[in-house]
Design a protein around this nucleic acid. Structure first.
Lengths: 348, 348
DNA sequence: CTGAAAGCGCTAACAT
DNA sequence: ATGTTAGCGCTTTCAG
C-alpha cells in the first residue's frame, strides 16, 4: 500500500481534486462546511499527507536551504549551525548540512547537488570558496548568504554577505598584551591561501603598528586551524632562541592545542607564555585555564545568516533597495586566564 | 533568466526531450554519437542541471536522508555525522541535519517534516525517542536506522538498529580501576529517563559485582551529559565525607567538565581523583591530562548507519532475510592519563 | 535510433 | 461553491 494521493482523498470524499486542494490550502474561497468536513474525514481516514515534492514542482520552492561549513568538528560551527537551525525551524525550513572538510572539490559537488535539489537558498561558511561553486548558484539565481568573504569578487548573483570586523576585538587583544608588557609577539595564522587568514594576520599587524610596534618584529607561523596546528606551533615557538612571550592564534582550536600540549610539557600558561585565541567557542570558558580570546557572536551569526537569506528569498528585489549587500558583525574581546605579564627572568 | 529545462536543451540541440533524457540517463539504448554530442553541447552551453524535484516526482526517491541527533555541540556527533556524510556523498545522497537539542517536541516536528519531504530514510541518534515521532515514519514505511535503542518497542516499521555493547569497554574500565586499587567508586550518569543512561549505569554496576564489589557501594549521581553536568558532579563528589577515589562518567563531555573544574580548584587529577569517560571523542586525547575513556567507534557508527539505511532502502525485503534487524558495535577502552592509584593518605 | 504522448501529484486559472 | 483543464520538468512506454 503506497502513499495515498490527493486523488484517493477526492474519490473517497466524492469530490474533485481541486476541492481537496482547497481545504488543504485553507486560504481559499469559502466552501460548504459539510463538504469541507467530508474531505477532512477522508484525509484523516487515509492518513493523507500532501507530497511536498509535487508541490515544489509547481511552486518552485522546496523550503529547504543548504548550509556549507568547512569543518563540522570545530565547535565554532556547532554554535552557528544552532543559530541557523533555530530560525529555519521557526520559519518552516529544513537545512541540508554540507561539510566540505576544507575540500574544495567536495564543496563544488555539494553546490551542484543543492542546485539540483532546488534549495531555496544557500549559506556558505567555509574558509575558502571556489568560483567554481558559485557558477551554478549564480546562474540559477539561487540566493546566497556568505560569511566572511569579499563578495565583490562574486558578481551577478543574488548574494549577500556577513562581514566580520575583526579589528575591534584584535585591537583590544593587542592593547591587552601590550599593557601587560609583552613586546615579542607571535601569530599563528590559518592557511594563508584563505583570505580570512590573511585578514586576521593583517588586522593583528595593523593593531600593532597603530601602537608603534614594528610589524616586522612578529613571528608569523602558518597553522591549519586545527588542534594539532596549535601543538606544532608551540613546538616551533619554544624552540626559538629569543622566543615570543605571547601568541595570538587565528582561532580557538589552535589555542587549545597550544595550551594542552604546553601542559603536557610542563610549560606554564600564562606564566611562560600568554595565549589569545579567536572565536570564543563555548569550550573556551570551560577549559583550564580559561582562554582569553577575541570573541565572535557565533549563534547570532547563524541567525543573521538565515534571516538574511529568507529576506532576499521572499523579495529578491530587496538587493536593489538595500544600501549594502552586506552586514557587519563586530568582534569583541574576552579576558580570561591565559594571559599575564611576561616572566622576564625566564630567559632560557 | 530562470533555470534551463530539458525542453530548452532539446530545442537548442534540435532533438526531442526524450533524446535529451536518454543521454542524461546513459544506461539507455545506443544512439548516434553525433546526436549525443550535440545534446552534450547544448547541455554545457546552457549549464543545464536536471531538476531532482521533477525526477523525484516520478521515481519516488529524493536521494536525501534525515539525520536526527540530540546535541550537535557534542563532539561525539561531529564524528558520527562525518561518517554518515562520507558514505552519503559517495552514494549520491544528501543529508538533512536535525538537531533536536534534547527536545522531544522538536524531534516530532522534524520527523513530520522529513516525511513530508519524502526523504528516502531517517537515521535517529538521539538519547530519547518518542513513539510520537515514529508514527508518521512507520505509517509511510520510511526506512529507519536507530542507534542505541531497543527496537522491540517499535514494531511495524522498516526499521533496523545499531546496538552498542558497552559491557566490554566498561568491564575493562572497571578492571583497570580495581587493579589500581580503587574501591570507592562513583558514576555520573545521563538523565535516567533515557534508556541508554540506565544501560550504562547497569553495565557499570554489573561489571563491579562480577568482581565481587557491592553495587550498592557506588555513589550514583544523575548528570545531564553536558560539561556543566560534570562541573556540578565534581562539586558534589568533593563535598562527600568519605568520598570516592574514582569516577566513571556516562560520556566524555561530563568528564571534561570535571577535569577542567578540578584544575580550577587545585584538585589534582588523577592524584586526587581518577576519572574515566565514555565516547572517546577526539578531544579526549588532546586535552591535558589526556582522558582515559571507554571508546566507541564513532566514525564507523556513522558509516554503518548510512550503509544499513541504504541497504534496506534498496531492498526492503532484506529485513525478512536478515537473521537480525540490528547490528552491534563493540566498545573498547583507552587508557590515558586521568587514572592512577588512589592517594590513600589524602583523607580530608 | 529518435519522437510523440501519457502521466508522476499537485495547484491555479477558467468554467459552471 | 465546486468541477475541468492545463501544466510544473522529467521519464517512459509505444510508435515510427
Amino acid at each position: 500500500m503506497s502513499r495515498p494521493t490527493i486523488a484517493d482523498v477526492a474519490r473517497l470524499a466524492g469530490v474533485s481534486k481541486s476541492t481537496v486542494s482547497r481545504v488543504l490550502n485553507e486560504n481559499m474561497h469559502y466552501m460548504r462546511p459539510e463538504t469541507r468536513e467530508r474531505v477532512a474525514q477522508a484525509i484523516s481516514v487515509l492518513g493523507y499527507n500532501p507530497s511536498s515534492v509535487a508541490r515544489s514542482l509547481i511552486s518552485k520552492r522546496t523550503h529547504a536551504v543548504g548550509l556549507l561549513v568547512s569543518d563540522i568538528s570545530n565547535p565554532f560551527y556547532a554554535d552557528v549551525i544552532h543559530g541557523v537551525e533555530d530560525v529555519a525551524i521557526a520559519r518552516g525550513y529544513d537545512v541540508f548540512l554540507c561539510n566540505t572538510n576544507y575540500d574544495v572539490k567536495r564543496g563544488a559537488a555539494y553546490a551542484r547537488s543543492l542546485v539540483a535539489k532546488q534549495v531555496d537558498g544557500v549559506i556558505i561558511m567555509t574558509s575558502n570558496v571556489s568560483d567554481e561553486w558559485m557558477q551554478d548558484l549564480v546562474r540559477c539565481q539561487v540566493p546566497v548568504v556568505i560569511l566572511d568573504w569579499d563578495t565583490r569578487c562574486l558578481p551577478g548573483g543574488v548574494m549577500r554577505s556577513i562581514l566580520i570586523d575583526f579589528d575591534a576585538g584584535i585591537q583590544a587583544a593587542v592593547d591587552h598584551l601590550l599593557s601587560l608588557g609583552h613586546r615579542r609577539l607571535a601569530h599563528v595564522s590559518g592557511p594563508l591561501r584563505y583570505p580570512t587568514s590573511r585578514q586576521r594576520l593583517d588586522s593583528f599587524l595593523h593593531a600593532l603598528s597603530r601602537r608603534g610596534i614594528d610589524p616586522a618584529s612578529v613571528t608569523a607561523i602558518e597553522g591549519n586551524l586545527r588542534i594539532d596546528g596549535g601543538v606544532s606551533a608551540l613546538q616551533k615557538i619554544m624552540a626559538m632562541p629569543n622566543r615570543p612571550t605571547a601568541v595570538f592564534t587565528a582561532n580557538d582550536l589552535m589555542a587549545l592545542g597550544m595550551i594542552w600540549s604546553a601542559a603536557g610539557k610542563g610549560i606554564q600558561i600564562p606564566e611562560d607564555l600568554s595565549v589569545i585565541g579567536l572565536d570564543d567557542i563555548s569550550l573556551a570558558g570551560d577549559i583550564h585555564p580559561p582562554l582569553t580570546t577575541v570573541s565572535l557572536p557565533r549563534y547570532e551569526i547563524g541567525r543573521l545568516a538565515m534571516n538574511m537569506l529568507l529576506e532576499v528569498q521572499n523579495d529578491p528585489a530587496i538587493l536593489d533597495r538595500l544600501p549594502d549587500r552586506h552586514c557587519t558583525v563586530q568582534s569583541g574581546f574576552s579576558v580570561r586566564k591565559t594571559t599575564a605579564a611576561p616572566c622576564t627572568h625566564v630567559k632560557e
